[in-house]
């Protein structure tokens, strides 16, 4: 059950940042953040494209490179010891090739332009995607480029000079809200795999993460104790005219009887009913669960259920509301509100 797992993860995270966190953990976090802040990142230009500059490239030998170096050292010592010039010559040749290869590795990143776009919104626990467009500006072809944000080995791609390529990066989500790609790494070990050059790219791309929907949620029609008004107006809203009633905040302006208002009869609302005419209010206050995230996941489930049932629904949260409406874009607005909800 992915949503439950996500919740557990969230609770763990909340706990860690709270009082329960050990001193060691906090120090480790602080030290980690300090070093993070020391890292050079590739800044994003005004056109939203990050171009890799010379001073933002890190390069270190790989395990293969270390082996290569060790074998070179043995070759050098042996040739020196036995005063074997041919041995020295081949050692120097292979070492020079490695040094040249190191510069090739570095140059494969230099001047690369990266642009990151967030992907479509996902529910928490699903994989969020980011779309990274790499552009080999200039006249150098790029090989063995990899974009990663975690330890998973990404596929490598090559770009002809002047060409561009797009790669999708999947990111597991553990919490709702705007997911930022906080650590995008571009790396290459072209041409010999002896060195790995990488850089951290700064992006402002985000992907929206909705709360994970609960498996089951109470039917919003059920009166949850808030008795100011019923949350479900069976018979209100659609085709057949049923009569008029007094205006209440939240009513659609389209349903206001403007003619009556003009006749100074006050704000009246025309009530309609029909086959689909079911309005539902999905409300924060209607739920009793104590935990914010649990409530949000229940609300998400309710929004999804209502959408599936084709109901007209509105959403009320402590920090705002979505009026009654129907349709995909309305559902998305509601989910976005739930995703970005923050309890003041």
């Amino acid at each position: 059950m992915p949503s439950a797992a996500a919740h557990r993860a969230d609770r763990r995270r909340d706990g860690a940042s709270g009082q329960g966190a050990s001193l060691r953990g906090r120090i480790a976090g602080r030290v980690g953040r300090y070093f993070e802040s020391m890292l050079r990142r590739v800044p994003m230009g005004s056109d939203g494209v990050a171009r890799v500059g010379a001073r933002q490239i890190y390069i270190l030998p790989t395990a293969t490179g270390m082996t290569y170096g060790a074998v070179m050292l043995v070759m050098l010592l042996g040739s020196l010891n036995y005063q074997n010039n041919l041995g020295l010559l081949s050692t120097f040749f292979l070492a020079s090739v490695a040094i040249i290869a190191m510069h090739h590795t570095w140059l494969s990143l230099l001047g690369l332009a990266a642009q990151v776009r967030g992907g479509p919104a996902v529910f928490c626990g699903e994989t969020a995607t980011f779309e990274i467009t790499l552009h080999a500006e200039g006249r150098r072809a790029r090989y063995d480029l990899r974009a990663r944000s975690d330890d998973k080995p990404p596929p490598s791609l090559q770009i002809a000079a002047g060409d561009q390529a797009t790669v999708k990066l999947g990111l597991r989500t553990a919490r709702r809200g705007q997911l930022e790609l906080d650590k995008l790494t571009l790396e290459t070990s072209h041409p010999m795999g002896l060195f790995r050059a990488w850089c951290y790219v700064e992006t402002d791309a985000t992907t929206l993460v909705y709360p994970a929907p609960a498996a089951h949620a109470p039917d919003p029609s059920h009166d949850a104790g808030d008795d100011r008004r019923p949350h479900r107006h069976r018979g209100e809203g659609a085709e057949d005219y049923l009569g008029s009633r007094g205006y209440r905040p939240g009513d659609s302006p389209r349903h206001i009887d403007w003619k009556a208002f003009a006749r100074e009869r006050g704000l009246l609302v025309k009530e309609y009913g029909g086959d689909e005419g079911q309005d539902v209010w999905i409300q924060w206050s209607a739920l009793r669960a104590g935990d914010t995230e649990t409530r949000l996941s229940l609300l998400t489930r309710q929004v999804l259920d209502a959408t599936e049932a084709g109901l007209r629904f509105g959403l009320r949260l402590p920090d705002g509301m979505e009026p009654l409406a129907r349709g995909a874009s309305h559902t998305q607005r509601c989910l976005k509100r739930l995703a970005l909800f923050s309890h003041a």
Binding site: L77, L80, Q83, L88, F92, V97, A101
Partner: peptide, 24 residues
């Protein structure tokens, strides 16, 4: 790679100090 490595190889070969007697 090989072509670009040649000048460096040559420099190293000509100038890298040699041992006059074996170490072991």
């Amino acid at each position: 790679l090989a072509l670009q490595a040649l000048p460096l190889t040559l420099v190293l070969f000509v100038l890298f100090p040699r041992l006059e007697a074996p170490l072991w």
